[in-house]
Structure formats: structure tokens, C-alpha cells
Design a protein around this nucleic acid. Structure first.
Lengths: 354, 354
DNA sequence: TTGTATGCGTTATCAT
DNA sequence: ATGATAACGCATACAA
């Protein structure tokens, strides 16, 4: 069937799109001048620029990204490197990045990695060196890996890390202040009269987990409430682990009257476990989560939770990467810190009278 | 600070990675021969091939994708084009695609589009023409747009459409048989003694919606059960729309004893609405959803639902795109149809005695 | 089976 | 302010 020459796949695109040569010829200037127009060179005669621009739009010319990438030794791609946090978060981040890339020549390329794999760093190194990405955005928890950030730098690749606390200098970081947000959430429980409050912490080694835990402890310390170790259970941000942790806490006697779970999925598990054993939420147990993922509003009762502005953070991260590209006016520095807020729904009630 | 020349951004990658020239020189052959080795040309002396391969691994040489893209007029990128279905689904698809791309030179590039936007087709056309993608995978519901598929073809871009029914010929499609799966799910409700079963249909114009509705009707017809129009409500696959539809059905008198919702999110809304008005699930109301998203297992009661093998489908779609690339042995045609299965959990019980 | 010369579309150098 | 010419790294036609 196939009559392909020798050994290579047949190209499927050959058909003529106008190139920079066509533009140059038709506008009577050199390629380089056209190139200057494209790249917004400041040293250009206004007349020539206008003339070239006219020809460009007339021809519908668009510069070829492949050729640019070859010549510039940099692709017009922004990479998203992440290791499997929850789906909603990854998608929100993608949305934010794409909002920032809207209208630019950049595209987004997604790269999941396997934290834990020994080859992870090498994989990423090769990925960066081969694809010549313009820059990458690192999602938590992998963004907390300092070796990875160093690697990006060494590979000559810009990077911005997203996280739950200041992980890097302002140019390389976008963060939410989880600690303060959780402190406020816990203070809200205390306001409602709760004194025995359980914590489902995130997995060991996660910055977000320690930040949220510290915020929790801050609030209790402020109110001079003792925190016995038994009121702390650890999960790994999954529903299943939340279920196990919740059961441990609900088995306590006296039972805590409130539980803060370090993310929504584990908070949903708390509600699930409570219902299974007939403990009314929020009548007998108040619950607060973290993330404000859709699930939090969809379960019963709707979950009080901490909303962090993940889409804005991602957009800002991408803009940080691109800063220095566009029109150099309107270059306002992108913010690095984002505040999370408490979303009050139905899963919290005043503490029951003993 | 910066001493950049004239008008262009400074390249950040310049540092010497070995090129095909280095390999050629060191192994004493021509560039073309090295190229042949890279592209697995069949007509090659085994000795030369081995020698070249040695030099390649010695140098750690990796071909530059940008240069290849320019020469071949095709990028080594697989695009994922989608318009905002639910997060879990998009992420599952990404996972499947990436599994297929594992170990190849291909990367995945994600492109959300705005169905409904008048400029959508033009946007995609420009995207394809500029990026010179090797191929794209179209996600439902945008995959149902025939004009889009035609456009891909015209742009010279391979494509595979994912969907709920046969949308295209086998080379360009990967589908699940939603109709049969829903028929079976509904039959299960009928087996449990239910005779008054409500349907929350998907949005008008979605192939998945009509397929699922037809499956529902098939089962009722088989059992010779009449389906009054009042037992059909329409949603748009969102929780909110499911809530509205559920309220309409639960207001009916007599109330249906079971509801099939065309996706999990709407099914979760049914459970939510039922709880709000004190209707016990599954005691007084059985519920079945579709998708087997995580939410279905996490709410209370855990949802009986239809699981479709979305990850496998996406993997298969990507492999279809790549077929003809790798070692030409082991070229088994990728399947085009995937069967969905019923996952029985706690949201279904025998119909209550009237 | 292998090599030579040339093209892919853009940017960089160094002139003028 | 602009242009001629050489990269960029690989693939292809054609020759040997």
C-alpha cells in the first residue's frame, strides 16, 4: 500500500503557508527586517513597519514556531510539572495557566512525574533539555522539592513554584498562606464553643501539611487549649486515609466535638464515617475541610472549608514566567502571596452542651 | 545590567549538547547515516549501526526535537482538545494518553476550547496549523462536532474522537457503548422491583445524553413499562442542574421509587435533594449514576453507577494516533469499542412495598 | 549500504 | 535603520 521513500514517515503538511520570505519579497525588505517587525524591535522606521505589517495581515502570515524554536533554542511552551494531587486542583491550575497564555504565542504542555521514583530527577532533566521549554510551573507537592528547582535552574529553564508557604524568592514562587488560613478556621471552631477539636493532618514531609498543622496549633495555643496527641491523626490526603483517621478520632472517649481535616477529601471522609456510626453532622460533630473542591459543596451537609485561590495563583505563576515578554509597559510585578478565605457552610454548628 | 544584542531575547540554552554532527564525526560516518540509525532505517549495516549507537550513548546524544519538527514539518506532540467536561474525566484522559506516550518521543499538549464560541473552529484551525501537531485527541462533547473532525483532516492533522457511540470510522474513533450499559443498569432497577423510575437526561444535543436516554428507554420497553413524560427531567451534567431535576421528580405524586441520572454529579445531586427532604436513599429511593467518578464512592450512601473505562479508551486513542510509528511488529489494531460495566454499591435497594 | 548537497523557516552577526 | 550571509540541527533527493 504505502509507497513511502526509504525510511521516513511522509510529511503531511507540505502545503504552502506563507513564510517570512514571502513577506520580505512582497514588502520589498529583507527577512531580517520582517523578523524585526515580528519581534517588535524598537529600532525600526515606522513606515517600513507599517508596510510590513500590512503585507503580513494581507498574506495571513504567521511565524513558524518550530523554526523559531530552532533558531532561538527555546520553545514557546510552558510546562506544567506535577505529581498527582487531586484532579480538581490540577485542572484548576491548567485553567489558570491557560488564561495567562491566552493571546500569546505560548502553549501549555503537561508533564506528570512520579515522586518517589528514583529516576524522577533525571526524567525531568531530560524532559527540560530536550523540549527546551521556555519555563515550567511546579505544582505542590513536587514543587517543594528543592533539588528539582535547582535542576530547572541548571537546565537553564525558568521556573515558578506553587506552594503553601514561601518556598523560594518572589520571582520563583507563588504561595498561599495556609498557616494563617487554618488558624482562622480553627479560631472559628473555638468561637463556636468547641474545646475538643481533632486534627487530621496531611502526610509527613508535605509542606502544606506542616503549615496547616501549625495553623491549627496556633489557634489552640492562642486560646490556651491543650492539644493531646490523641486528637491528632494523620492521613495522606486521600478519602481512604481520611476514613481511617476519622474512625480513630471518633473512637475517642470523650469524642471530639469538631474535626479539622487538612483537605476536603479527608473531610468528606469524616462526614462519611460519622454518618456510618450515626453521629450527626453538624449536631454532634462539626467538620472543616480545606481546598473548596466541588465535592465539599455536594456532600451532605455542605462542608465549611478553606478556599484557596488556586486559579489566580496559577495564572499569576504563568505571568511571572512570561514577564519581560510582552509590551514592556504595564509590567506590574505579579503578586507572590495569596490569601485563603473561610467558606462557611453547614458542617459547623455550636458545640453541643455536654 | 543586560547586554543583549539589538532586539532579541537572549537564548538561555546555548551550552553545548552533542548534535548529530558530533555523533557523525566521532563514529566516522555521515550525518545521514546517523539519521538513519535514529529513525531505524532497515537498510543499514549492523556493524555501523552498532558503532553509531555506541557513540550515541557515549555522548548521551539526544536528537533535537525542534530541528526534527522543522525538517519533518511535524511536531512530536499529541494534542488534547477538550471543552470543559468534568475535571476527573479530563484528568483520566490525560493519564491514559500519557501512558501511551510513555517511552516515545511524544509529549502531550492540552488545548481547552470554548464550544459555543463562534471563533472556535478558526481557533482550532490556527492552533493545528501553527503547532503542526502530529495528531489530536478529541474529547466529548466537542468530539461530536463533525465540522471539527473535518477541519482536523483538512489541516492534515491525524485525529481520534472519543465518544459514547460510533462517531466515525474505526481509525478515528474510540467509543463506549453507553446505550447498552444504561439498558443493563435500568434492567437492574427493574429486577429490584422498581416500576416507577425517573430519568435525569443529559443536555440536549449531546450524543452521550441521547445514547443513555435510549438505553433507559430500551430497558423499560423490554419490560413493557410505560414511561410518562413527567418521569423525564433534563439536566446539563452539573450538580446544580441535577438538583433542580431531582426536585421536579421528587415532587411527583406518586413519587418514583428509583432515579437514573445520566452522570454521577447529577446522581449526587439526587441523593442530596432526597436527604434535604427526608427521603431515605436507598430505603425509599434508589439511585444510579454514570461515570464512576470518585464522588460516587465518597458520598453517603455510596452510589451504584456505570463505570466506563475512560483511561483505557484514552490510552487506546493515543496508540491509534501513533500506530505506524514504532516497531512495525506487534502492531495489533487498537480496539475501538469499550464496554462499560455496572458498579453495584449501596444506593440501590429493592422497591418498597406500596 | 553510504555520502553530498540542499532545504526547513527563523534569528544572529556583522556589515553598511 | 537595513541587508547579506551564516547559523540552528535534522531530514531528503539523488548520487555513488
Amino acid at each position: 500500500m504505502s509507497s513511502r521513500a526509504e525510511d521516513t514517515p511522509s510529511p503531511r503538511w507540505g502545503t504552502g503557508k506563507p513564510t517570512i520570505n514571502d513577506v520580505a519579497r512582497l514588502s520589498g525588505v529583507s527577512k531580517k527586517t520582517v523578523s524585526r517587525v515580528i519581534n517588535r524591535s524598537p529600532l525600526l522606521n515606522e513606515d517600513t513597519r507599517k508596510r510590513v505589517l500590512e503585507v503580513i495581515s494581507e498574506l495571513g502570515y504567521v511565524p513558524n514556531p518550530q523554526a523559531r524554536a530552532l533558531a532561538l533554542r527555546t520553545n514557546f511552551l510552558i510546562g506544567l510539572i506535577h505529581d498527582n494531587p487531586n484532579a480538581q486542583m490540577v485542572l484548576n491550575v491548567q485553567q489558570g495557566i491557560l488564561e495567562a497564555l491566552q493571546g500569546t504565542d505560548f502553549e501549555m504542555i503537561v508533564r506528570p512525574v512520579d515522586r518517589g521514583s528514583a529516576a524522577m530527577l533525571d526524567d525531568v532533566r531530560h524532559f527540560l533539555q530536550r523540549q527546551r521549554l521556555y519555563g515550567v510551573i511546579l505544582l505542590p507537592p513536587i514543587s517543594e522539592n528543592d533539588a528539582l528547582a535547582r535542576l530547572c535552574d541548571e537546565a537553564g529553564c525558568r521556573y515558578v513554584r506553587m506552594g503553601s508557604a514561601e518556598l523560594d524568592d518572589a520571582d520563583h514562587m507563588v504561595a498561599s498562606n495556609d498557616r494563617e488560613a487554618v488558624r482562622a478556621a480553627t479560631a472559628y471552631l473555638i468561637e463556636q464553643g468547641h474545646r475538643s477539636i481533632g486534627l487530621i493532618a496531611g502526610p509527613h514531609g508535605f509542606r502544606s501539611a506542616t503549615e496547616r498543622r501549625q495553623g491549627f496549633e496556633d489557634a489552640l495555643a492562642e486560646a490556651r487549649i491543650k492539644l493531646p496527641r490523641s486528637l491528632i491523626a494523620e492521613g495522606n490526603y486521600t478519602f481512604a486515609s481520611g476514613l481511617a483517621a476519622a474512625e480513630k478520632l471518633l473512637d475517642l472517649s470523650p469524642r471530639p466535638t469538631a474535626i479539622f481535616a487538612s483537605n476536603d477529601e479527608m473531610a468528606a471522609a469524616v462526614v462519611h464515617a460519622a454518618r456510618q456510626r450515626g453521629v450527626d453532622v453538624p449536631g454532634q460533630l462539626s467538620v472543616i475541610g480545606f481546598d473548596d473542591t466541588p465535592i465539599s459543596a455536594h456532600i451532605w451537609p455542605p462542608l465549611t472549608t478553606v478556599r484557596w485561590p488556586i486559579v489566580s495563583m496559577a495564572r499569576s505563576a504563568a505571568l511571572k514566567l512570561l514577564s519581560g515578554i510582552g509590551e514592556s509597559d504595564s509590567e506590574v510585578a505579579e503578586p507572590s502571596m495569596f490569601l485563603s478565605t473561610l467558606v462557611r457552610r453547614a458542617s459547623v454548628a455550636p458545640a453541643p452542651n455536654p
